[in-house]
Computed example of a mutant assay.
Amino acid sequence: MKRIVNLSALVAATLAISACVQTPSAPTPPATAPAGPELSLSRLECGTGITNDVGRFSDTYAMDGKKVPFVFSCYLIQRGDEYLLWDSGHAMTAGAPAPKVSLVDQLAQRGIRPEQIKFLGISHYHNDHIGQAASFPQATLLIGKGDWDVVSSPKPVGTNPAFLAPWLTGGSKLETVPLDKDVFGDGRVIMLTTPGHTPGHHSLLVKLKDTGPVLLTGDLAHFHENYETNGVPSFNTNRAETLASLDRFKKIAAQLKATVVLQHDARDVGKLPAFPAAAK
């Protein structure tokens, strides 16, 4: 009986000691990425502003008869001596909303040549986001896999493949992005998979040292009324994916306390400096 009591006491003591020892948990990822080469973000003009009738931007008829001022924006991210151009705007064709100044000429204001653009990141395949892509054939095109499947199909719908001819012909470097993509490999510039507007749609997260995290929507939402109410355009390719992407994007924005820039909303123009100035 004495042995049984002693054994029980030993077990109880062991359990008590174990309860006091806590297994280390995985570290919480930092809101900002580790330091590296200087990172900056600029807004480029990619089309003249228009006032858009936005009835078709809601599949519940919530926007019928309403008009919203639209802008067309592209973005230059510089990391040290490397460049990512995010979206390439409208083509340089006659009439609004074509840009007044090409991306090539805008970049020349800071002495940046087309061949210096390392990556051309495309939020999605619509023409107002790929119109000047062919001006940067030396860049590696980063595009959602679902979008590339459409662009490279025999009968693409909703896009003009001619704008991506350097990559379709195999002469330029291409990387299709199925999920998220850490563009420079240091956790500070990340393509976020946000499908629904198109099958391979992506948004962009840029973690700046002074400004803090910035989220560029692509066309996840075109203007504040839709962003705030989870409105879904009638021409989106997948309603359920759109709502899931909005949910993910908003949770990331809240977690990181990020500045959200809706690329088409004129009210967001002032959130980032116009090129050649830059946020850091």
Rank of each mutant, 00 (worst) to 15 (best):
E241P: 06
T242P: 05
A244V: 04
S245L: 06
T259Q: 12
A244E: 04
N230F: 13
N236Q: 13
D247M: 15
T242G: 11
N238F: 00
R239A: 14
D247K: 09
S245N: 05
T229L: 11
H264P: 14
K250F: 06
N236L: 07
T259Y: 05
L262I: 12
A244D: 07
V232Q: 00
I252Y: 03
K257H: 13
N230M: 12
T237L: 06
L243D: 04
R239Q: 10
A244G: 08
P233S: 02
V232I: 04
K250I: 03
V260Q: 02
N238L: 05
Q255H: 14
V261F: 03
G231H: 03
V232W: 01
T229V: 14
F235V: 10
N238I: 05
A240M: 04
H264N: 14
G231M: 08
T242K: 09
R248V: 00
V261W: 01
T229A: 01
G231C: 07
V261Y: 01
H264I: 13
K257N: 15
G231D: 03
N238V: 05
F235L: 08
L262Q: 11
R239C: 08
L243N: 07
R248Y: 07
Q255Y: 15
T229C: 03
T242D: 06
S245T: 08
S234P: 10
L256P: 08
F235T: 04
I252D: 02
P233K: 00
E241F: 02
T242N: 11
N230H: 09
L262F: 02
L243I: 10
T242M: 15
L256E: 07
N236F: 08
E241Q: 11
L256Y: 10
T229K: 13
T237Y: 03
A253C: 12
G231L: 06
A244Q: 05
F235W: 03
V232G: 03
K251H: 15
A240Y: 09
A244M: 02
K250D: 04
I252R: 05
L246V: 05
R239H: 12
L256D: 07
P233Y: 03
